[in-house]
């Protein structure tokens, strides 16, 4: 289910004194099964952009085409796309409202008019996909930990069986374990179900771990894009935008400055370890 964004411009409060252009002439295609990261400073238009992916906002100019269908073409097209593109907002646990975990996750599938047996099957499957057991079904979502509540909220979207998952800062405010759990489940959903995952994040570490391709936004425009390695190796441009490559990439640059022939395309601790061992052992071999 490829997504094509063409010449998208979005202006808030057009024609009023508060008029503000949040997204300017953005063209972007998202392939099937991609793991795409979107980064950029606050106010760069990331959230506005992704709200177009399932038609929550309508472009002021340009168009959004999902699976060959222009979202502006008809109400039916929009409704179909909303089922296929699941959007998870910042702090989604604030939108939990039902008395039990089961009811909360069941809300979406019930609205699709599915039978009770199918609803139950979907709820259990979705909870499993985020690592939550059936023993939580009858619990109040408000008794759970922050990380668990957030996973219940994500399960509510997964129960709609989307093809594309769009997440805005899914790990913000979580402790390291909660963060690692969410990232692990997203990786698995992508790997096992082939879901397309679009991740908006301030955490360079999170995108370094998860995203294969990165788009960098600034003042409503895409200013840099490429594979995650390519983008993070362009430290000067990122720093000009107030972004910083992840610590391991910075470490490699510093070693390179000191004359060590390490690769700059390093994103994770494990990759840094292998690269340093390769260079150090190579020197000893000489």
């Amino acid at each position: 289910m490829p997504i094509l964004i063409e010449g998208l411009t979005y202006v808030y409060a057009a024609g009023t004194p508060l008029e503000a252009r949040a997204v300017s002439d953005v063209t972007l295609s998202i392939e099937d099964g991609e793991l795409l990261g979107i980064i950029g400073p606050t106010g760069s238009g990331k959230t506005t952009l992704i709200q177009h992916l399932n038609g929550l906002l309508r472009p002021t100019q340009g168009r959004v085409v999902v699976d060959g269908v222009d979202l502006a073409s008809s109400r039916e097209a929009l409704r179909a796309v909303r089922r296929k593109v699941g959007l998870i907002f910042q702090y989604p646990e604030q939108q939990l409202f039902e008395e039990t975990v089961f009811e909360d996750v069941a809300f979406g599938p019930r609205n699709l008019g599915l039978g009770e047996a199918e609803v139950e099957a979907r709820v259990k499957e979705a909870l499993g996909q985020v690592g939550l057991g059936h023993e939580l079904l009858k619990r109040s979502p408000f008794e759970l930990s922050g990380g668990q509540m957030r996973r219940v909220a994500i399960a509510g979207v997964l129960a709609m069986k989307p093809k594309v998952l769009v997440l805005d800062e899914p790990t913000a405010g979580l402790d390291p374990r909660g963060r690692a759990e969410i990232l692990g489940h997203l990786e698995a959903l992508h790997g096992r179900l082939g879901l397309t995952v679009v991740l908006v994040s301030h955490s360079m570490r999170d995108v370094a771990r998860l995203a294969r391709r990165l788009v960098v936004m600034d003042r409503g425009r895409i200013v840099l894009s490429g594979t995650t390695r390519e983008v993070f190796s362009r430290a000067e441009e990122l720093e000009r935008l107030g972004l910083k490559p992840p610590p391991m990439t910075s470490l490699m640059r510093r070693l390179r400055d000191r004359g060590r022939p390490v690769s700059l395309g390093v994103l994770t601790v494990e990759e840094a370890r292998r690269e340093i061992l390769r260079v150090v052992r190579g020197e000893r071999g000489n």
Binding site: D175, P176, R177, G178, R205, P246, P247, M248, L251, V269, A272, R273, I276, L277, V280
Partner: peptide, 20 residues
């Protein structure tokens, strides 16, 4: 405890275990 150490510390500890 479900916490972590800074990435640099983690890497240093790994490299030490590797014999550096």
């Amino acid at each position: 405890l479900g916490l972590e150490v800074p990435q640099v510390t983690e890497l240093a500890q790994m490299l030490r275990a590797d014999g550096l």
